[in-house]
Amino acid sequence: MLRSPRPRALDSAAAAPTEGVPAIRATGVRKSYPGVDAVRGIDLTVAQGETFGFLGPNGAGKTTTIAMLCTLVAPTAGRIEVAGHDTRTAPGLVRRNLGLVFQETTLDGDLTAAENLRFHADLYAMPRATLPARVEAMLELAGLTAWRDRLVRTFSGGMRRRLEIARGLLHGPRVLFLDEPTVGLDPQARTQLWDQLGEVREREGTTLFLTTHYLEEAERCDRVAIIDDGRIVAQGSPAELKSVLGADRIDLRTGDDREAAVTLLERFGIEAVAGPHGLRVHAENGAALVPRLCAGLGVPVYEVTVTRPSLDDVFLHHTGHRIRVDRNGDAG
């Protein structure tokens, strides 16, 4: 495997004050456009090396927030630091410390994969001596070594996205921002991309900050912030967020639901309610309860479904509505 040191040396001045500092710290960040409050006060801290997911429906303020974190948009109020540098007073240092993968492609289709990377290297004034090895290492990370001299316009959507990630990492940023990284990719390309991101974390130790409206992607993050209508409504690890909802949900279809409900209350001390297809009960550890229910209920059990709380349930719990997910048409 090709390995090359992260090109930290190029900005030793930028690296010096950042040890032990959170990768991202935002306090009271707001953004208003005429007539619209896109972001209504966001506080968040992302530790170095963490994979942080920003979960919310489209239009919730995710892209605006990323644009502010990346110095592309100035916040109306609040303070943002990336790797210890203020986005207002030191935008240059912030930019050196971050890599960006946008929702839409920002590659030059008329250049080859390697040329796109070289262009990036020159924009970030990377040291020339270690550059060829670094370019090769990033191409290898993207699985594009064999494609290095092909024009990017011949690439598939998944290859382009992987190349964008490789490019975003080329200058060794502390934080890689990914705005909806898997939108528009087929399932196989999505899996490959997540494999690549896993390797990025392992090899480069980069902090990943990604926005998504796909729940299964949020599940892969160390921590998730749920954003709705320009505000963060909940924040924590996926498990923590789900533990707020507590119990698992068990749906039962039995030979005699009324009899079963009585038995549940008398023998198990569990109160059952009417569910969509029979009875519904809540329990701490649903899977362990199922065999005991089947044995002790005294009526035939035709069907049992145990549902763990999902992030969508968490989202519903905090916002009163669900994230609309439409894989084919991209949620509206």
Partner: peptide, 13 residues
């Protein structure tokens, strides 16, 4: 239009 401009605009240049 093609998005490449953003690659240049977010750089420290």
């Amino acid at each position: 239009q093609s998005g490449f401009l953003r690659e240049m605009l977010v750089s420290p240049v």
